Simulated scan of single mutants.
Amino acid sequence: MSLNIRKKSNEKALVSYRKITKSFGDRTVLKELDLDIYPGEKIALIGPSGSGKTTIARLLMTLEKPTSGTIEVGGEMLWHMPHKGKFAPANEKHLHRVRSKIGMVFQHFNLFPHMTILRNVTEALVHVLKMSKSEADERAMRMLERVGLHEHTKHYPSQLSGGQKQRVAIARALVMQPSVMLFDEVTSALDPELVGEVLDVIKGIALQGDMAMILITHEMDFARDVADRVLFTDGGIIVEEGTPEQIFENPRSPRLQTFLSRFLHGNSDGKMASRVAAGEEQ
């Protein structure tokens, strides 16, 4: 099943997973996944821990290799490359080039503690994109202003709150101007009072640009507000997908209904309204 809610006439998918299976030893975490993501589309992945959500992102970032199946990004194979009229396993040069279209923000910030905030953001611009220091600084400053941290450029990560560190990580990924951004439970390591500032930044990014986004989250209100399409994964498959209204107000599968019952409560008109419980298992 594929709704392709944002799909325009004759529009080609930006990212395509075809029959993707991923196993770790005897445990299969993705089972012949088919998924298309279109330019500008915002996808929210929800589901219980171990359902395959993060693996979907890690395969796209080449942090994990698929057991079988193919992934295309911008019309190019990610894990395979042309060789003598056929497709062979991709070498590191090919992986690096195709992967450059993708940005990711993780649960943990992974900032360089010995570098200022500005240098954390400019490092890849200078060493990967080969920009001059002045060009990199200018682009980084614009991005840090966008995430509300332009006054902290000379600070070090240890001087920032968890929410500020995560906003630096977001700026560092966005400054590379990827075609698709992955956000993997970016608030799960934050104190509850810091969650809102990070989600507000991501919402602003979603509203301002045409960049595709994959949002792995247990924040149901956030998924409802930001996503064009919500996918519920469980047992390594996409069990159900639809608009936020369809998923949260009229879930069809018993598995999704059970999952949402941990987050949702009935409101006065009988519809379901989302509520993230403090300390809810991811």
Score class of each variant (00 low, 15 high):
residue 66 P to G: 04
residue 41 E to Y: 09
residue 66 P to D: 05
residue 89 P to H: 07
residue 60 L to S: 11
residue 87 F to D: 02
residue 89 P to K: 13
residue 62 T to Y: 01
residue 56 I to G: 01
residue 53 K to C: 06
residue 72 E to V: 07
residue 78 L to W: 14
residue 81 M to L: 08
residue 84 K to P: 03
residue 54 T to L: 11
residue 41 E to M: 08
residue 63 L to M: 15
residue 41 E to Q: 15
residue 87 F to E: 08
residue 55 T to P: 00
residue 69 G to K: 12
residue 77 M to R: 13
residue 30 L to C: 09
residue 52 G to H: 12
residue 79 W to I: 12
residue 38 Y to R: 07
residue 44 A to Q: 01
residue 66 P to F: 06
residue 77 M to F: 14
residue 70 T to Y: 11
residue 66 P to L: 08
residue 70 T to L: 05
residue 86 K to I: 02
residue 57 A to W: 03
residue 34 D to V: 08
residue 85 G to R: 02
residue 57 A to N: 07
residue 77 M to P: 04
residue 87 F to T: 12
residue 67 T to L: 08
residue 75 G to T: 05
residue 61 M to P: 01
residue 86 K to N: 13
residue 64 E to M: 10
residue 45 L to S: 00
residue 51 S to I: 07
residue 75 G to Y: 11
residue 81 M to D: 04
residue 54 T to R: 07
residue 62 T to A: 09
residue 52 G to P: 01
residue 51 S to W: 11
residue 85 G to L: 09
residue 45 L to T: 05
residue 38 Y to C: 08
residue 51 S to E: 00
residue 73 V to K: 05
residue 74 G to W: 12
residue 60 L to R: 10
residue 39 P to H: 10
residue 41 E to H: 11
residue 62 T to I: 10
residue 70 T to I: 13
residue 39 P to M: 07
residue 32 E to G: 08
residue 43 I to T: 02
residue 72 E to G: 02
residue 76 E to I: 12
residue 55 T to S: 11
residue 59 L to I: 14
residue 67 T to G: 01
residue 68 S to Q: 14
residue 71 I to K: 01
residue 60 L to F: 11
residue 75 G to D: 06
residue 30 L to T: 13
residue 69 G to A: 13
residue 88 A to Y: 05
residue 59 L to F: 05
residue 79 W to H: 15
residue 37 I to T: 04
residue 48 P to Q: 10
residue 35 L to G: 00
residue 44 A to M: 01
residue 89 P to S: 13
residue 55 T to C: 01
residue 56 I to S: 01
residue 63 L to E: 13
residue 84 K to D: 15
residue 63 L to I: 13
residue 51 S to K: 04
residue 71 I to H: 07
residue 37 I to L: 02
residue 78 L to D: 08
residue 71 I to V: 15
residue 84 K to H: 14
residue 50 G to T: 06
residue 45 L to R: 03
residue 42 K to S: 05
residue 67 T to N: 04
residue 82 P to M: 11
